[in-house]
Write a protein that binds this DNA or RNA. Structure first.
Length: 672
DNA sequence: GACTGGGCGCTTTTT
DNA sequence: GCGCCCAGTC
């Protein structure tokens, strides 16, 4: 079939584009024009007369959704583009739940609980259940609970377990869930789960099936249980389900992504058309050879081999450096040289790494050399204390039941409500089964509550209530400004940071938040405090890179956030055993996902790829000898040595390394 | 009730 | 090596 939308595509791509009816699995290797296929396919469908409102395209990241929207907008009429539903799974769930959540007993104006609030809520639940943080790390409990949700496991299932530890997790899980419900909150996982529940209602399911007659899922290999359920139930009747993905790029197993979903698509949707995209338009032969050589070592996969459409380039460069400082220096000097001698724009360059601690050394060097850069992920804007404080106030204005935010700011700025008073508030609230705010408001009824603290807390609640009443008819920026003023936050910053330079820096976060409110109000006609907070929570990480897009800066990011992107020249740093593959994954026997991560990193590069590793690295403040990653060997088609890792190292360093290893080992058995 | 210092534990990756 | 939590002091 010849179509405007297949022009310039290869045979496989065209086949995917014109297969609009029935199930379709597109196995798209890295750089094989996947996004192009998806967008052209949607364009083709619209041209064939499919009404845009019947099309639902889902991605995992905001970045991917944004790119898809943008590229579709360039292909089809503006009206049609506006009627398409394109967004992340989470955003789609929010949209649906805002409309129908009351059907499953959830208030439609629920607030979204982000990762930090989640951690606080977990800690609180543990405290209430008297499970000390030393026995159960809240962070690990948090990820465990999230994983359970992603596997569609209810708390009750854990309570029945024979494993005492699992039972404790179940108890925290149950408690945590209840606390969110009382506060009118849903966490990220709940968003998906709630839609799954909503779709269990026959009438609702029918509504969604009628509305969304054509589904398209990007990065299908990252689909977790609830996401799969959503696709399966909405797409189950009409079976117009197109999934695009690459099992070799499945890197979210730790988050509940289930690689078997893409491997089993043909079982779930019998008679599916399968299209393989193996022609790579991104990278040189050398880079793809390296990528293929690495990924070949993974046993369970849809066999495929990337072929370069570009031809030969330069060999992959592999560098050994002494330590992380040298590594950073080498890479940054190299970058400076590339920019100077080859006029390579900085935006074509990226430094990719495994963990969030690695960029530090690079940032230091980049500053020294005056190279502008963006650090994607890592310490986010939203992690800054001032930002979190102001956001907590805003959340409280929007949702008086938000106990976590109340606890966060109840004494910031200091109001004379100390820990002991808060303790008492909480004790009464727990004993009476009342929300914290109610206890404060009716404090006279409870003799256990200190009067002065209660009075101060009541003044705060009254201020918040006034602000809440002011919301309507006020523009967002004014509202934010008024909230900040009403709680004297500027004075608080002044008090904490007498140094004017420090103070200005701290205040930056607050004013940036106001800027964001302004931008949000401009973008959405129906902007409210609620939509702003939703936007902030759902798009937390993308906000910053959107601002810096188009600017000519070097990119620093984790391998996870690099997926889906490409750069002319890539520096893949910290290629060592323990980092990539990460020690934790080695412990869990999960090298394959690490290998896919390496594969993702390698395939980001278009023309030039440099791998670096060091001889020793600071860990927990101690210098430890390290060995090159097995992937450094594999990329060259070699076998990684299995011999003792520290054999040729100086004795002093080797000793430290041995000690460190012992310490690790000694700790392991204490884990259940 | 606010502030300071010692001790401890930890580091995967994110919507 | 850093940040967080807790205990002790003003």
């Amino acid at each position: 079939m010849v179509s405007k939308f297949t022009a310039g595509l290869n045979a496989e791509q065209s086949r995917a584009v014109v297969t609009t009816e029935g199930p379709l699995l597109v196995l798209a290797g890295a750089g094989t024009g996947k996004t192009r296929v998806i967008t052209h396919r949607i364009g083709h469908m619209l041209a064939q007369g499919v009404p845009a409102r019947h099309v639902l395209a889902m991605t995992f990241t905001n970045k991917a959704a944004g790119e898809m929207k943008e590229r579709i907008a360039g292909l089809v009429a503006r009206q049609a583009a506006a009627e398409l539903t394109v967004g992340t799974f989470h955003a789609f769930c929010v949209k649906a739940l805002r409309q129908y959540a009351d059907r499953i007993g959830i208030r439609r104006d629920f607030a979204i609980c982000d990762g930090d609030d989640q951690l606080l809520a977990i800690k609180q639940a543990q405290r209430e259940l008297q499970i000390p943080e030393t026995t159960m790390q809240p962070r690990m409990c948090q990820s465990r609970v999230s994983l359970l949700k992603n596997r569609l496991v209810a708390p009750e299932a854990c309570l029945d377990s024979d494993d005492a530890w699992e039972v404790d997790i179940g108890r925290v899980y149950e408690r945590y869930d209840k606390s969110l419900r009382v506060r009118g909150m849903l966490d990220f996982d709940d968003l998906l789960l709630s839609l799954v529940r909503l779709l269990q209602d026959k009438a609702m399911l029918q509504t969604f099936r009628e509305r969304y007659r054509y589904l398209c899922v990007d990065e299908y290999q990252d689909t977790n249980g609830p996401q799969y359920e959503i696709v399966r139930s909405i797409g189950g009747a009409h079976r117009n389900v197109c999934v695009v993905g690459d099992d070799d790029q499945s890197i979210y197993g730790w988050r509940g992504a289930d690689i078997s979903k893409i491997l089993n698509f043909e079982k779930d949707f019998p008679n599916a058309t399968v299209v393989r995209l193996e022609t790579n338009y991104r990278s040189t032969v050398e880079i793809l050879n390296g990528a293929n050589a690495v990924i070949r070592n993974n046993p369970a996969r849809h066999a495929k081999t990337l072929r370069s459409a570009l031809g030969n380039g330069q060999a992959i460069s592999i560098r050994k450096l002494r330590d992380e400082t040298q590594e950073a220096q080498f890479v940054v000097e190299e970058i400076v040289k590339r920019v100077r001698e080859h006029q390579t724009p900085l935006r074509d360059l990226a430094i990719l790494f495994r963990t969030a601690v690695q960029p530090r050394a690079f940032e230091l060097q980049l500053r020294q050399f005056g190279v502008p850069y963006v650090l994607v992920g890592g310490m986010s804007f939203f992690d800054r204390k001032e930002v979190r404080d102001v956001l907590a106030y805003l959340k409280l204005v929007a949702n008086p039941a938000d106990e976590l935010s109340l606890l966060r700011v109840i004494n910031t700025p200091p109001r004379g409500i100390g820990d002991t008073s808060i303790e008492k508030f909480l004790a009464v609230a727990a004993a009476q089964g009342l929300p914290l705010a109610d206890v404060i408001q009716r404090s006279e009824a409870f003799p256990a509550i200190p009067a002065t603290a209660a009075a101060a807390a009541n003044r705060l609640l009254a201020t918040l209530a006034t602000l809440r009443g002011l919301q309507d008819g006020k523009d967002l920026v004014t509202l934010v400004r008024e909230v900040v003023a009403a709680v004297s936050y500027a004075e608080e910053v002044q008090r904490c940071y007498p140094d004017p330079v420090m103070r200005a820096k701290r205040w930056e976060g607050v004013s940036e938040l106001m800027n964001m409110a302004e931008v949000h109000a401009r973008q959405r006609k129906d902007a409210t405090l609620g939509t702003f907070l939703e936007d902030v929570t759902l798009n937390a990480n993308d906000q910053e890179d959107a601002d810096s897009q188009g600017e000519n800066k070097l990119t620093l990011m984790t391998l996870h956030s690099a997926k889906g992107l490409e750069f002319g020249e890539v520096y893949l740093v910290g290629m060592e055993e323990g980092l990539l593959p990460h020690a934790k994954s080695l412990e869990d026997g999960n090298v394959e996902e690490e290998r896919r991560l390496a594969y993702v990193g390698i395939t980001r590069a278009k023309q030039r790829l440099t791998l670096t590793f060091v001889e020793s690295r600071a860990r927990y403040g101690q210098r430890v000898a390290v060995v090159p990653s097995r992937f450094v060997y594999e990329v060259q088609g070699l076998q990684a040595p299995t011999a003792s890792p520290t054999r040729s190292k100086p004795v002093a360093v080797a000793k430290v390394a041995a000690k460190a290893t012992k310490r690790r080992k000694a700790k392991t058995p204490t884990k259940p």
